[in-house]
Structures are given as structure tokens and as C-alpha cells.
């Protein structure tokens, strides 16, 4: 099998999986029914993307593994999502800040992935880009509301942005699989997205009357499978059924 392509797909898909899982756990607990429904929609979009990616990965792997095996039966060090998406739902400011910081990246990323030589990836990107375009609109609007809303919301949102900022740089790190796939015209050169990303984020934070953090200290490791402590708990939930009742159909 094409190990680089397989790893590359996981690198893309795991972000959606973990973020979808985070959002999914909020269903029923949102600040209003309308917001609850909206966040669940985003979660559903992400899981839809995840399924397409993993089904493709399973095909490439060519063994007996299914989308669910790939999603739920890897060990903690084998998940290669960025640290940003596994950060907890501390409050609605964190949830929206995490979403916003990821959506801006995700949209830029998919716009490039759509040009991939790999037709399956290109097709998934083409479909996903419309969804993510909406996610970005939704989270951007909320960042503006919260940033430029009340004193309380401003302060909470600034805190969330400040504390999640440290996970943004990792979005633009290249793994070995990335490099190999970029060379083949399949993968996206994420380093090239960095400037546009920070410019765009800065513009929106500005409009939201929030400060763009100046810190240059960044965390990384997710792409190498070295995660924050939060991921383990998320995985215990995600994997619970598959681990407790192995080799069964549901």
C-alpha cells in the first residue's frame, strides 16, 4: 500500500474526527436551542468528511480494516490530529475560538486540496469546502459577537484566543507524509498557507475588537502523535464500545 498517502489521509481526517467528537459532546448543552442545532450541524459535517476520508484510507490499506477500525481502534500515539482540535470545551468562548482558529485554516487547506492530483481527495475537498465555508462564517460571526459584545464576553473570548494561540503554528508544520505527498502533487503545502492565515485571523480579531496575541511560543506534537493530556479522555469515550466489545457489528 501507499504508506505515505495513507498517513497523509489520516493527518487530514483525524482533525475532523477529533473536532467533530468535541462538538458532538455539546449537543443538548448549548446556550440556546438554535445555537445547539447549529453546532451539531457542524459536527455532522465533520463526521461526514471523516467517513469519506477513512473509507478511502481503508481502501488504500487494503487489509480488512473498516472506517470504524481506523477511527476507533488506533492507540493514542497513532492519532495525528493537531493539538488545537483536541482542546476541551472549556466554555462557549473556547469552543468558538477553537472553531474559528481551525475553520480559517481548514478553508484555506481545502481550497488547495481541491487541486490535488488524487481525484478522491479532490472530490472530498470539493464537497467539504462548502460545508467549511459555512463553518467559517458561523464561527467568525460568533467571534465578532463575543469579542465586541459585552465586557464579560470580550474578556472570556480574549482569554480563549490567548490560550489557544499556542496551538496555531502547528497547523503549518509539514510531516514526512506531507512532504512526500506535496512532491507528488497530491498533498497541500501547508507552509504556504501560513501568511494568509495569520493575516485573515488578525483582520477578524481586529474587527472583533480583540488583540492578536504576540506570543511566539508555540506547542506542537499532535502531528507526531504526541498529544496533550486531553486526548486520552476523548479517546476513552470514542473507543469505549469497540474496546469493550471487540469484533462485533453494530
Amino acid at each position: 500500500m501507499n504508506q505515505n498517502l495513507y498517513n497523509y489521509i489520516l493527518g487530514v481526517a483525524d482533525n475532523s474526527l477529533i473536532l467533530g467528537q468535541r462538538l458532538g459532546s455539546l449537543t443538548g448543552h448549548g446556550p440556546s436551542l438554535e445555537t445547539d442545532i447549529a453546532c451539531t450541524n457542524i459536527s455532522l459535517d465533520l463526521f461526514g468528511q471523516v467517513r469519506s476520508y477513512y473509507q478511502y484510507a481503508a481502501k488504500i490499506a487494503g487489509d480488512k480494516r473498516t472506517e470504524d477500525d481506523i477511527a476507533m481502534l488506533r492507540k493514542e500515539r497513532e492519532y495525528v490530529n493537531v493539538l488545537l482540535v483536541e482542546q476541551p470545551n472549556t466554555d462557549f468562548a473556547y469552543t468558538m475560538a477553537r472553531q474559528f482558529l481551525f475553520d480559517v485554516y481548514h478553508h484555506l487547506f481545502l481550497t488547495q486540496l481541491e487541486k490535488s492530483k488524487d481525484l478522491t481527495l479532490s472530490a472530498i475537498a470539493k464537497k467539504s469546502i462548502k460545508e467549511v465555508s459555512y463553518h467559517q462564517r458561523f464561527s467568525t460571526d460568533w467571534i465578532k459577537r463575543l469579542g465586541d459584545g459585552t465586557e464579560v464576553s470580550h474578556q472570556k473570548t480574549q482569554e480563549a484566543i490567548d490560550s489557544l494561540w499556542t496551538y496555531t503554528d502547528e497547523l503549518f508544520h509539514q510531516t514526512e507524509a506531507d512532504k512526500a505527498m506535496v512532491a507528488e502533487g497530491i498533498g497541500v503545502d501547508v507552509t504556504a498557507l501560513k501568511e494568509t492565515y495569520y493575516k485573515k485571523v488578525d483582520e477578524i480579531l481586529n474587527e472583533a475588537t480583540l488583540q492578536t496575541p504576540e506570543s511566539k511560543w508555540f506547542q506542537k506534537g499532535g502531528k507526531q502523535g504526541i498529544h496533550t493530556e486531553h486526548l486520552g479522555y476523548l479517546l476513552s469515550d470514542l473507543q469505549y464500545m469497540q474496546r469493550t466489545y471487540p469484533n462485533m457489528e453494530w
Binding site: S32, L33, E34, T35, I37, A38, R137, R145
Partner: peptide, 16 residues
């Protein structure tokens, strides 16, 4: 539905 402003009302309407 409920919404704070017209943009949110449109977004909520889409989702609901």
C-alpha cells in the same frame, strides 16, 4: 425562531 440579529436569524433559519 429566536436570534439576536438578522445575520444570526438567517443562519439559525438555515440550520433549523
Amino acid at each position: 425562531l429566536h436570534a439576536a440579529d438578522e445575520d444570526m436569524a438567517l443562519e439559525n433559519a438555515r440550520d433549523v
